[in-house]
Design a protein around this nucleic acid. Sequence first.
DNA 1: GATGTGATGTTGACATTGTCACCATTCACT
DNA 2: AGTGAATGGTGACAATGTCAACATCACATC
Lengths: 188, 188
Amino acid sequence: MVTMSTSHPESPKKYHHGNLRDTLITAALPILESHGPDKISLREVARTVNVSPNAPYKHFPTKEDFLAALASKGFQQLEMLLAPAKNLSAGCETYITFAVHNPHLYQLMFSPILATNCESSELEQASTAAYKTLLKHFNTHNPNDPRALHAWALIHGIATLRINGLLSHPVPFEQIAKAPLFMTDQLK
Amino acid sequence: MVTMSTSHPESPKKYHHGNLRDTLITAALPILESHGPDKISLREVARTVNVSPNAPYKHFPTKEDFLAALASKGFQQLEMLLAPAKNLSAGCETYITFAVHNPHLYQLMFSPILATNCESSELEQASTAAYKTLLKHFNTHNPNDPRALHAWALIHGIATLRINGLLSHPVPFEQIAKAPLFMTDQLK
DNA sequence: GATGTGATGTTGACATTGTCACCATTCACT
DNA sequence: AGTGAATGGTGACAATGTCAACATCACATC
């Protein structure tokens, strides 16, 4: 439970929302998914939460910082899904399924917004946490283990290609992952 | 050579530009690369070409159709670079290098803009042409060959991760690609 | 050669958006 | 009680995508 400032949540209208930051984020996730990361509007999110267009700016310096917060949320969700996976295959499947079920969120999570601006260390924290959990399934702790990078790049690639409808549906992940031999061979 | 309508290209100011469509595209590519796909503005492109804000609309029904045209251009460029590659390794290197050198273009090319709207069959044509050339390096003609999908997903994954600064520089492609064994193994 | 027709550009307008400056309310702490 | 920091609201501004209406030009047809 989040600590609310008042005891009665059903109080009709308070000048101060009490928990705007989180409310904005949870309200924004469906909007993000329906509009896409480049179309989502801070004002619309504010509207659906019944606050003024500028209320969000008391919690996020800029729109991109807000998007960074959404991405952080995404990494947290992904981490929570990834943690209980039983083996490598299940972990990969979970990862890809998350991406396919939340295409716009996933796209945002891996948007250059991450690499570039936004002081948001929350984002870096959440993403590295998720990556750490992923590494566990890859049987390593070294973030730069080439085997881990290979596996990550592979499932990330499959995920994004599938999101963009570039993989015919019936080709499942395992079938793709099991067939790298010629690659390894030909690179001698 | 493109057929120009007038013989003297250096005529000072003509009401009709003569080749606006192509001019817009070539002018937009640098802007795209400096601003990013979500920040580029149709009006700014028009401005740099010295036409009115609405001139582009005579050539593209909507902004997204314009972006689709840019993406098409990207696929054409990629195809041209890919075609002369001598072997698998060179092809992959070329692919990834293109992505890293034109991160925003590459991002646009694999943006959901492709999958969703825009009638632009030009885009589909250009992208499948590029993919076909890529398949050649993968020693197959079957677009759904799991080995090809694996290879494509892998280099696409590496490319996007690198674009987002998620791969420490020193880890080169071949080192990653050569290390898939445990993946193939553990999936039994 | 006059004409009119379709393609291409221009101008003006509108709603929406991100964001700034300033005002209002409330809570915590003295 | 009173003061200041959070937090929320209002108004304003420039930029953008896009629509409607108008202008100009190349060219085919008489």
